[in-house]
Design a protein around this nucleic acid. Sequence first.
RNA 1: GUGGGUGUAGCUCAGCUGGUUAGAGCACCAGAUUGUGGCUCUGGGGGCCGUGGGUUCGAGUCCCAUCAUCCACCCCA
Length: 422
Amino acid sequence: MLTKAPRGTRDILPAETGMWQFFEEKVREVSRLFGYSEIRTPIFEHTELFLRGVGEVTDIVSKEMYTFTDRGQRSLTLRPEGTASVARAYLEHKMQGEAQPVKLYYVGPMFRYDRPQAGRYRQFHQYGVEVFGASDPTVDAEVIALPLSFFRSLGLKDFTLHINSVGCPKCRGEYRQQLQASLKEIVGELCKDCAERYDKNPMRILDCKNEQCQELTKDVPAQLELLCEECADHFAAVREALDALGESYIVNPRLVRGLDYYTKTAFEIMSSELGAQSTICGGGRYDHLLSTIGGPDVPGIGFAMGIERVLLAMEAAGVQPRADRGTDVFVATAGVAAAEALKVTLALRQAQVAADKDYLGRSLKAQLKYANRLGVRYLVILGAEEMQNGQATLRDMQTGEQETVTLAALTERVVALVREAK
RNA sequence: GUGGGUGUAGCUCAGCUGGUUAGAGCACCAGAUUGUGGCUCUGGGGGCCGUGGGUUCGAGUCCCAUCAUCCACCCCA
Protein backbone atom coordinates (compact mmCIF):
# COMPACT_ATOMS: atom_id res chain seq x y z
CA MET A 1 0.00 0.00 0.00
CA LEU A 2 2.90 2.30 0.73
CA THR A 3 3.97 2.22 -2.88
CA LYS A 4 0.54 2.39 -4.43
CA ALA A 5 -1.45 5.53 -5.23
CA PRO A 6 -4.88 5.53 -3.54
CA ARG A 7 -7.76 3.94 -5.39
CA GLY A 8 -9.12 6.08 -8.18
CA THR A 9 -6.02 8.30 -8.29
CA ARG A 10 -3.07 8.01 -10.59
CA ASP A 11 0.23 9.53 -11.54
CA ILE A 12 0.45 11.42 -14.77
CA LEU A 13 3.85 10.28 -15.96
CA PRO A 14 6.31 12.09 -18.24
CA ALA A 15 5.07 10.04 -21.19
CA GLU A 16 1.64 11.65 -20.77
CA THR A 17 2.38 15.16 -19.58
CA GLY A 18 3.00 16.29 -23.16
CA MET A 19 -0.67 15.61 -23.92
CA TRP A 20 -1.76 17.48 -20.81
CA GLN A 21 0.38 20.46 -21.69
CA PHE A 22 -1.01 20.46 -25.23
CA PHE A 23 -4.54 20.34 -23.81
CA GLU A 24 -3.84 23.17 -21.37
CA GLU A 25 -2.31 25.36 -24.08
CA LYS A 26 -5.46 24.95 -26.15
CA VAL A 27 -7.60 25.76 -23.10
CA ARG A 28 -5.82 29.08 -22.64
CA GLU A 29 -5.90 29.88 -26.33
CA VAL A 30 -9.59 29.13 -26.89
CA SER A 31 -10.69 30.70 -23.60
CA ARG A 32 -8.92 33.91 -24.47
CA LEU A 33 -10.44 33.99 -27.95
CA PHE A 34 -13.91 33.62 -26.44
CA GLY A 35 -13.28 36.35 -23.88
CA TYR A 36 -12.84 34.35 -20.68
CA SER A 37 -10.38 35.05 -17.85
CA GLU A 38 -8.91 32.41 -15.61
CA ILE A 39 -9.95 32.01 -11.98
CA ARG A 40 -8.25 29.71 -9.48
CA THR A 41 -10.34 28.80 -6.46
CA PRO A 42 -9.37 26.61 -3.48
CA ILE A 43 -9.40 22.83 -3.78
CA PHE A 44 -11.62 22.61 -0.68
CA GLU A 45 -14.56 24.69 0.48
CA HIS A 46 -16.97 24.76 3.39
CA THR A 47 -19.12 21.64 3.06
CA GLU A 48 -22.16 23.87 3.33
CA LEU A 49 -21.40 25.44 -0.04
CA PHE A 50 -21.85 22.16 -1.87
CA LEU A 51 -24.84 21.09 0.22
CA ARG A 52 -26.65 24.26 -0.76
CA GLY A 53 -25.20 24.86 -4.19
CA VAL A 54 -25.13 21.38 -5.69
CA GLY A 55 -28.17 20.07 -3.82
CA GLU A 56 -28.46 17.74 -0.83
CA VAL A 57 -30.36 15.02 -2.65
CA THR A 58 -27.91 14.70 -5.53
CA ASP A 59 -25.65 11.65 -5.66
CA ILE A 60 -22.62 13.89 -5.65
CA VAL A 61 -23.51 15.32 -2.29
CA SER A 62 -25.22 12.34 -0.70
CA LYS A 63 -22.61 9.72 -1.44
CA GLU A 64 -19.59 11.02 -3.33
CA MET A 65 -18.06 13.82 -1.29
CA TYR A 66 -14.66 13.75 0.35
CA THR A 67 -15.57 15.54 3.55
CA PHE A 68 -13.32 16.03 6.57
CA THR A 69 -13.14 18.05 9.74
CA ASP A 70 -10.10 20.25 10.20
CA ARG A 71 -8.31 21.01 13.45
CA GLY A 72 -10.62 23.96 14.04
CA GLN A 73 -13.65 21.63 13.83
CA ARG A 74 -14.77 23.09 10.50
CA SER A 75 -16.46 20.73 8.06
CA LEU A 76 -14.64 21.03 4.75
CA THR A 77 -15.05 19.19 1.46
CA LEU A 78 -12.73 18.56 -1.44
CA ARG A 79 -14.54 20.18 -4.35
CA PRO A 80 -16.59 17.69 -6.38
CA GLU A 81 -17.21 20.22 -9.15
CA GLY A 82 -16.24 23.77 -10.00
CA THR A 83 -19.38 25.83 -10.45
CA ALA A 84 -20.27 26.26 -6.77
CA SER A 85 -16.77 27.53 -5.96
CA VAL A 86 -16.71 30.00 -8.82
CA ALA A 87 -20.19 31.24 -7.88
CA ARG A 88 -19.00 31.67 -4.30
CA ALA A 89 -15.97 33.64 -5.48
CA TYR A 90 -18.20 35.84 -7.65
CA LEU A 91 -20.25 36.76 -4.59
CA GLU A 92 -17.33 37.02 -2.19
CA HIS A 93 -15.52 39.47 -4.45
CA LYS A 94 -18.69 41.37 -5.36
CA MET A 95 -18.22 40.80 -9.06
CA GLN A 96 -21.80 41.89 -9.69
CA GLY A 97 -20.27 45.33 -9.34
CA GLU A 98 -17.93 44.74 -12.28
CA ALA A 99 -18.83 45.06 -15.94
CA GLN A 100 -21.35 42.34 -16.74
CA PRO A 101 -21.31 39.64 -17.88
CA VAL A 102 -18.40 38.18 -15.95
CA LYS A 103 -16.83 35.36 -17.97
CA LEU A 104 -14.51 33.00 -16.12
CA TYR A 105 -12.76 29.70 -16.78
CA TYR A 106 -10.95 27.24 -14.57
CA VAL A 107 -8.84 24.10 -14.92
CA GLY A 108 -8.07 21.78 -12.06
CA PRO A 109 -8.69 18.64 -10.03
CA MET A 110 -12.09 17.62 -8.67
CA PHE A 111 -12.83 14.81 -6.21
CA ARG A 112 -15.67 12.33 -6.07
CA TYR A 113 -15.84 9.09 -4.12
CA ASP A 114 -17.02 6.89 -7.00
CA ARG A 115 -16.19 3.37 -8.15
CA PRO A 116 -13.39 3.88 -10.66
CA GLN A 117 -14.17 2.91 -14.23
CA ALA A 118 -12.97 3.64 -17.75
CA GLY A 119 -12.75 7.44 -17.90
CA ARG A 120 -13.74 7.86 -14.28
CA TYR A 121 -11.43 8.59 -11.38
CA ARG A 122 -11.78 9.75 -7.80
CA GLN A 123 -9.43 12.60 -8.50
CA PHE A 124 -10.16 13.82 -11.98
CA HIS A 125 -9.68 17.09 -13.80
CA GLN A 126 -12.06 19.50 -15.39
CA TYR A 127 -11.88 22.49 -17.65
CA GLY A 128 -14.97 24.62 -17.21
CA VAL A 129 -16.35 28.09 -17.88
CA GLU A 130 -19.01 30.17 -16.17
CA VAL A 131 -20.83 33.28 -17.37
CA PHE A 132 -22.61 35.39 -14.75
CA GLY A 133 -25.03 38.22 -15.37
CA ALA A 134 -26.44 37.42 -18.80
CA SER A 135 -29.64 35.56 -19.55
CA ASP A 136 -29.67 36.13 -23.30
CA PRO A 137 -30.04 32.91 -25.33
CA THR A 138 -27.07 33.81 -27.50
CA VAL A 139 -24.92 33.37 -24.39
CA ASP A 140 -26.23 29.81 -24.15
CA ALA A 141 -25.28 29.29 -27.77
CA GLU A 142 -21.79 30.67 -27.18
CA VAL A 143 -21.23 28.48 -24.14
CA ILE A 144 -22.20 25.48 -26.27
CA ALA A 145 -20.14 26.58 -29.27
CA LEU A 146 -16.98 27.03 -27.21
CA PRO A 147 -16.39 23.37 -26.32
CA LEU A 148 -17.34 22.30 -29.84
CA SER A 149 -14.77 24.66 -31.27
CA PHE A 150 -12.29 23.57 -28.62
CA PHE A 151 -12.68 19.89 -29.47
CA ARG A 152 -12.09 20.62 -33.14
CA SER A 153 -8.93 22.52 -32.31
CA LEU A 154 -7.71 19.42 -30.47
CA GLY A 155 -8.26 17.34 -33.57
CA LEU A 156 -11.41 15.55 -32.41
CA LYS A 157 -14.21 14.86 -34.88
CA ASP A 158 -16.48 12.12 -33.60
CA PHE A 159 -18.64 13.83 -31.02
CA THR A 160 -22.32 14.70 -30.80
CA LEU A 161 -24.13 17.57 -29.17
CA HIS A 162 -27.34 16.83 -27.27
CA ILE A 163 -29.51 19.67 -26.01
CA ASN A 164 -32.62 19.98 -23.91
CA SER A 165 -34.44 22.37 -21.66
CA VAL A 166 -35.15 21.38 -18.07
CA GLY A 167 -37.42 24.35 -17.44
CA CYS A 168 -37.46 26.74 -14.52
CA PRO A 169 -38.66 26.19 -10.91
CA LYS A 170 -42.12 27.28 -12.04
CA CYS A 171 -42.76 24.87 -14.92
CA ARG A 172 -40.57 22.12 -13.51
CA GLY A 173 -42.66 21.87 -10.34
CA GLU A 174 -45.82 21.51 -12.35
CA TYR A 175 -44.23 19.01 -14.68
CA ARG A 176 -42.92 16.90 -11.85
CA GLN A 177 -46.40 16.52 -10.40
CA GLN A 178 -47.86 15.63 -13.77
CA LEU A 179 -45.08 13.14 -14.38
CA GLN A 180 -45.54 11.38 -11.07
CA ALA A 181 -49.26 11.22 -11.72
CA SER A 182 -48.83 9.60 -15.12
CA LEU A 183 -46.22 7.14 -13.79
CA LYS A 184 -48.20 6.17 -10.74
CA GLU A 185 -49.86 3.15 -12.30
CA ILE A 186 -46.79 1.67 -13.92
CA VAL A 187 -44.27 2.37 -11.17
CA GLY A 188 -44.55 -1.22 -9.97
CA GLU A 189 -43.40 -2.56 -13.33
CA LEU A 190 -40.34 -0.33 -13.53
CA CYS A 191 -36.86 -1.50 -12.56
CA LYS A 192 -35.53 -1.26 -9.02
CA ASP A 193 -33.59 1.91 -9.73
CA CYS A 194 -36.60 3.61 -11.26
CA ALA A 195 -38.79 2.73 -8.31
CA GLU A 196 -36.35 4.71 -6.19
CA ARG A 197 -36.24 7.53 -8.70
CA TYR A 198 -40.00 7.92 -8.55
CA ASP A 199 -39.80 9.92 -5.34
CA LYS A 200 -36.27 11.19 -5.52
CA ASN A 201 -35.93 12.34 -9.10
CA PRO A 202 -38.76 11.16 -11.37
CA MET A 203 -37.30 12.96 -14.41
CA ARG A 204 -34.50 10.43 -14.42
CA ILE A 205 -36.92 7.59 -15.09
CA LEU A 206 -37.24 8.80 -18.67
CA ASP A 207 -33.48 8.52 -18.99
CA CYS A 208 -33.29 4.89 -17.77
CA LYS A 209 -31.29 2.46 -19.90
CA ASN A 210 -33.47 -0.48 -18.98
CA GLU A 211 -35.38 -1.57 -22.09
CA GLN A 212 -38.58 -2.34 -20.26
CA CYS A 213 -38.58 1.06 -18.61
CA GLN A 214 -37.96 2.70 -21.97
CA GLU A 215 -40.90 0.81 -23.44
CA LEU A 216 -43.24 1.56 -20.57
CA THR A 217 -42.47 5.26 -20.55
CA LYS A 218 -42.22 5.90 -24.27
CA ASP A 219 -45.50 7.86 -24.42
CA VAL A 220 -44.95 9.83 -21.23
CA PRO A 221 -44.52 13.52 -22.10
CA ALA A 222 -41.13 15.09 -21.41
CA GLN A 223 -40.46 18.38 -19.67
CA LEU A 224 -39.59 19.86 -23.03
CA GLU A 225 -43.18 19.49 -24.20
CA LEU A 226 -44.57 21.23 -21.14
CA LEU A 227 -42.35 24.25 -20.72
CA CYS A 228 -43.78 27.57 -19.65
CA GLU A 229 -43.87 30.26 -22.29
CA GLU A 230 -40.70 31.96 -21.14
CA CYS A 231 -38.69 28.72 -21.11
CA ALA A 232 -40.10 27.61 -24.46
CA ASP A 233 -39.19 30.93 -26.07
CA HIS A 234 -35.71 30.77 -24.61
CA PHE A 235 -35.13 27.25 -25.91
CA ALA A 236 -36.36 28.21 -29.38
CA ALA A 237 -33.96 31.16 -29.41
CA VAL A 238 -31.02 28.95 -28.38
CA ARG A 239 -31.83 26.56 -31.22
CA GLU A 240 -32.06 29.43 -33.63
CA ALA A 241 -28.66 30.71 -32.58
CA LEU A 242 -27.10 27.25 -32.94
CA ASP A 243 -28.68 26.89 -36.37
CA ALA A 244 -27.23 30.24 -37.36
CA LEU A 245 -23.80 29.00 -36.28
CA GLY A 246 -24.25 25.92 -38.41
CA GLU A 247 -23.85 23.60 -35.42
CA SER A 248 -25.83 20.40 -35.63
CA TYR A 249 -27.39 18.93 -32.52
CA ILE A 250 -29.84 16.36 -31.29
CA VAL A 251 -32.77 17.60 -29.24
CA ASN A 252 -32.93 15.01 -26.52
CA PRO A 253 -36.02 15.56 -24.34
CA ARG A 254 -34.81 12.83 -22.00
CA LEU A 255 -31.50 14.47 -21.30
CA VAL A 256 -31.47 15.21 -17.58
CA ARG A 257 -28.78 17.01 -15.67
CA GLY A 258 -27.97 15.60 -12.30
CA LEU A 259 -27.29 18.77 -10.41
CA ASP A 260 -30.08 20.72 -8.74
CA TYR A 261 -29.02 24.12 -9.91
CA TYR A 262 -29.73 23.71 -13.61
CA THR A 263 -32.53 25.66 -15.31
CA LYS A 264 -33.60 26.00 -18.94
CA THR A 265 -30.79 25.00 -21.29
CA ALA A 266 -29.02 21.70 -20.59
CA PHE A 267 -26.52 20.10 -22.93
CA GLU A 268 -24.04 17.28 -23.21
CA ILE A 269 -21.37 16.47 -25.71
CA MET A 270 -20.70 12.76 -26.17
CA SER A 271 -17.70 11.18 -27.79
CA SER A 272 -18.25 8.10 -29.89
CA GLU A 273 -14.65 7.09 -29.23
CA LEU A 274 -15.37 6.14 -25.62
CA GLY A 275 -17.09 3.35 -23.69
CA ALA A 276 -19.90 3.79 -21.21
CA GLN A 277 -18.57 7.08 -19.82
CA SER A 278 -18.93 8.89 -23.12
CA THR A 279 -19.97 12.33 -21.92
CA ILE A 280 -16.93 14.52 -22.38
CA CYS A 281 -18.65 17.81 -21.63
CA GLY A 282 -21.84 18.74 -19.82
CA GLY A 283 -23.37 22.04 -18.90
CA GLY A 284 -26.31 24.31 -18.79
CA ARG A 285 -27.94 27.37 -17.37
CA TYR A 286 -28.34 27.92 -13.62
CA ASP A 287 -30.32 31.08 -13.13
CA HIS A 288 -30.96 30.64 -9.41
CA LEU A 289 -27.72 29.20 -8.11
CA LEU A 290 -26.44 32.56 -6.90
CA SER A 291 -29.56 33.31 -4.88
CA THR A 292 -29.53 29.76 -3.51
CA ILE A 293 -26.16 30.36 -1.91
CA GLY A 294 -27.16 33.74 -0.54
CA GLY A 295 -26.47 36.17 -3.35
CA PRO A 296 -28.57 38.37 -5.62
CA ASP A 297 -30.63 36.73 -8.35
CA VAL A 298 -27.95 36.83 -11.03
CA PRO A 299 -28.35 34.38 -13.94
CA GLY A 300 -25.52 32.06 -14.88
CA ILE A 301 -24.53 29.42 -17.37
CA GLY A 302 -21.49 27.23 -17.86
CA PHE A 303 -20.04 23.87 -18.76
CA ALA A 304 -17.54 21.40 -17.35
CA MET A 305 -15.34 19.14 -19.40
CA GLY A 306 -13.70 15.94 -18.13
CA ILE A 307 -10.06 16.21 -19.13
CA GLU A 308 -9.22 12.52 -18.67
CA ARG A 309 -12.11 11.57 -20.91
CA VAL A 310 -11.15 14.05 -23.59
CA LEU A 311 -7.57 12.77 -23.47
CA LEU A 312 -8.88 9.23 -23.84
CA ALA A 313 -10.91 10.30 -26.86
CA MET A 314 -7.88 12.05 -28.33
CA GLU A 315 -5.82 8.92 -27.88
CA ALA A 316 -8.52 6.82 -29.52
CA ALA A 317 -8.67 9.30 -32.40
CA GLY A 318 -4.90 9.07 -32.82
CA VAL A 319 -4.18 12.69 -31.92
CA GLN A 320 -0.48 13.22 -31.26
CA PRO A 321 0.87 16.28 -29.49
CA ARG A 322 4.10 17.61 -30.96
CA ALA A 323 6.90 15.69 -29.32
CA ASP A 324 9.04 17.37 -26.73
CA ARG A 325 12.48 18.09 -28.15
CA GLY A 326 14.24 17.05 -24.95
CA THR A 327 17.97 17.24 -24.51
CA ASP A 328 20.03 18.67 -27.38
CA VAL A 329 23.55 17.89 -26.23
CA PHE A 330 25.18 15.33 -24.00
CA VAL A 331 28.59 16.03 -22.50
CA ALA A 332 30.62 12.84 -22.10
CA THR A 333 33.93 12.32 -20.39
CA ALA A 334 36.57 9.68 -20.90
CA GLY A 335 38.09 9.04 -17.52
CA VAL A 336 39.20 12.59 -16.86
CA ALA A 337 37.70 16.09 -17.00
CA ALA A 338 34.72 15.60 -14.65
CA ALA A 339 34.92 19.21 -13.47
CA GLU A 340 35.37 20.53 -17.01
CA ALA A 341 32.27 18.54 -18.10
CA LEU A 342 30.06 20.26 -15.57
CA LYS A 343 31.47 23.63 -16.56
CA VAL A 344 30.82 22.96 -20.25
CA THR A 345 27.30 21.66 -19.54
CA LEU A 346 26.36 24.74 -17.55
CA ALA A 347 27.81 27.05 -20.19
CA LEU A 348 25.66 25.35 -22.84
CA ARG A 349 22.55 25.70 -20.69
CA GLN A 350 23.30 29.35 -20.19
CA ALA A 351 23.37 29.65 -23.98
CA GLN A 352 19.82 28.21 -24.13
CA VAL A 353 20.95 24.75 -25.21
CA ALA A 354 19.37 21.82 -23.35
CA ALA A 355 22.42 19.95 -22.13
CA ASP A 356 23.08 17.04 -19.81
CA LYS A 357 26.03 14.96 -18.65
CA ASP A 358 26.92 11.68 -16.99
CA TYR A 359 26.66 11.52 -13.22
CA LEU A 360 27.51 7.87 -12.63
CA GLY A 361 31.15 7.73 -13.67
CA ARG A 362 30.29 5.39 -16.51
CA SER A 363 32.49 4.25 -19.34
CA LEU A 364 32.48 6.38 -22.48
CA LYS A 365 30.69 3.57 -24.25
CA ALA A 366 27.93 3.48 -21.63
CA GLN A 367 27.60 7.25 -21.89
CA LEU A 368 27.15 7.00 -25.66
CA LYS A 369 24.49 4.39 -25.16
CA TYR A 370 22.70 6.55 -22.59
CA ALA A 371 22.93 9.62 -24.83
CA ASN A 372 21.46 7.57 -27.63
CA ARG A 373 18.52 6.58 -25.46
CA LEU A 374 17.87 10.17 -24.59
CA GLY A 375 17.61 10.84 -28.30
CA VAL A 376 20.34 13.48 -28.11
CA ARG A 377 21.55 14.82 -31.43
CA TYR A 378 25.03 16.07 -30.43
CA LEU A 379 27.67 14.69 -28.13
CA VAL A 380 30.63 16.52 -26.66
CA ILE A 381 33.57 14.30 -25.68
CA LEU A 382 36.11 15.50 -23.14
CA GLY A 383 39.02 13.10 -22.72
CA ALA A 384 42.70 13.16 -21.85
CA GLU A 385 43.68 14.00 -25.42
CA GLU A 386 41.25 16.89 -25.67
CA MET A 387 42.17 18.26 -22.28
CA GLN A 388 45.83 18.32 -23.21
CA ASN A 389 45.09 20.52 -26.22
CA GLY A 390 42.30 22.57 -24.71
CA GLN A 391 39.85 21.03 -27.15
CA ALA A 392 36.68 18.96 -27.30
CA THR A 393 35.41 16.38 -29.77
CA LEU A 394 31.97 17.13 -31.12
CA ARG A 395 30.01 14.19 -32.52
CA ASP A 396 26.80 14.24 -34.54
CA MET A 397 24.91 11.18 -33.30
CA GLN A 398 22.76 11.09 -36.38
CA THR A 399 25.50 11.06 -39.01
CA GLY A 400 28.38 9.81 -36.91
CA GLU A 401 30.57 12.69 -38.11
CA GLN A 402 33.04 14.20 -35.65
CA GLU A 403 34.99 17.42 -35.46
CA THR A 404 37.49 18.92 -33.06
CA VAL A 405 36.71 22.31 -31.55
CA THR A 406 38.67 24.42 -29.08
CA LEU A 407 36.98 24.72 -25.69
CA ALA A 408 36.79 28.47 -26.17
CA ALA A 409 34.72 28.07 -29.36
CA LEU A 410 32.69 25.04 -28.23
CA THR A 411 29.53 26.73 -26.95
CA GLU A 412 29.25 28.98 -29.97
CA ARG A 413 29.70 26.04 -32.34
CA VAL A 414 27.08 23.91 -30.55
CA VAL A 415 24.59 26.78 -30.49
CA ALA A 416 25.01 27.13 -34.27
CA LEU A 417 24.53 23.40 -34.87
CA VAL A 418 21.47 23.12 -32.64
CA ARG A 419 19.87 26.17 -34.23
CA GLU A 420 20.50 24.69 -37.67
CA ALA A 421 19.02 21.31 -36.66
CA LYS A 422 15.71 22.78 -35.52
C1' G B 1 -23.38 0.57 -2.93
C1' U B 2 -24.29 -3.87 -6.86
C1' G B 3 -22.55 -7.51 -10.72
C1' G B 4 -18.71 -9.90 -13.77
C1' G B 5 -13.38 -10.56 -15.44
C1' U B 6 -8.20 -10.47 -13.98
C1' G B 7 -3.81 -10.60 -10.33
C1' U B 8 3.23 -14.98 -12.25
C1' A B 9 10.25 -10.72 -13.52
C1' G B 10 10.37 -3.34 -14.72
C1' C B 11 6.65 -4.37 -19.20
C1' U B 12 3.63 -8.06 -22.31
C1' C B 13 2.50 -12.84 -21.23
C1' A B 14 3.43 -18.83 -21.07
C1' G B 15 3.07 -22.39 -17.15
C1' C B 16 -1.26 -28.68 -20.21
C1' U B 17 -5.98 -32.71 -15.99
C1' G B 18 -1.82 -30.15 -8.69
C1' G B 19 4.25 -33.38 -9.13
C1' U B 20 11.73 -31.87 -9.48
C1' U B 21 15.85 -25.86 -8.98
C1' A B 22 8.90 -21.13 -12.12
C1' G B 23 9.90 -19.85 -18.13
C1' A B 24 9.91 -16.66 -22.88
C1' G B 25 10.10 -11.98 -25.49
C1' C B 26 11.14 -6.93 -24.60
C1' A B 27 13.75 -3.78 -21.13
C1' C B 28 18.16 -3.35 -17.83
C1' C B 29 23.65 -4.35 -16.83
C1' A B 30 28.37 -6.32 -18.68
C1' G B 31 31.61 -8.36 -22.46
C1' A B 32 32.96 -9.17 -27.78
C1' U B 33 35.39 -3.41 -29.32
C1' U B 34 41.05 -1.33 -22.35
C1' G B 35 38.17 6.61 -26.09
C1' U B 36 32.76 5.87 -29.50
C1' G B 37 25.85 4.66 -29.42
C1' G B 38 22.03 2.48 -32.68
C1' C B 39 22.61 -3.73 -35.55
C1' U B 40 24.50 -8.63 -34.14
C1' C B 41 26.43 -12.37 -30.80
C1' U B 42 27.62 -14.06 -25.69
C1' G B 43 26.90 -13.76 -20.57
C1' G B 44 24.47 -11.67 -16.14
C1' G B 45 21.17 -9.51 -12.44
C1' G B 46 16.37 -9.71 -11.23
C1' G B 47 10.08 -13.47 -9.01
C1' C B 48 7.15 -13.82 -0.37
C1' C B 49 3.43 -16.66 -8.47
C1' G B 50 -1.25 -9.87 -4.80
C1' U B 51 -2.12 -11.17 0.62
C1' G B 52 -4.14 -14.51 4.49
C1' G B 53 -6.20 -19.12 5.49
C1' G B 54 -7.77 -24.15 3.90
C1' U B 55 -7.60 -29.10 1.11
C1' U B 56 -3.37 -32.43 -0.06
C1' C B 57 2.33 -36.57 0.79
C1' G B 58 2.87 -32.22 -2.46
C1' A B 59 -0.45 -25.82 -4.51
C1' G B 60 1.65 -20.81 -9.35
C1' U B 61 -2.20 -24.60 -10.47
C1' C B 62 -8.03 -26.58 -6.39
C1' C B 63 -11.46 -24.07 -2.36
C1' C B 64 -12.63 -19.73 0.91
C1' A B 65 -11.67 -14.85 2.41
C1' U B 66 -9.38 -10.27 1.60
C1' C B 67 -7.02 -6.45 -1.13
C1' A B 68 -5.90 -4.39 -5.78
C1' U B 69 -7.15 -3.71 -10.81
C1' C B 70 -10.32 -3.69 -15.22
C1' C B 71 -15.29 -3.54 -17.24
C1' A B 72 -20.45 -2.61 -16.49
C1' C B 73 -24.71 -0.72 -13.31
C1' C B 74 -26.06 3.53 -10.13
C1' C B 75 -24.41 8.48 -11.07
C1' C B 76 -21.49 11.78 -13.52
C1' A B 77 -16.94 14.96 -16.41
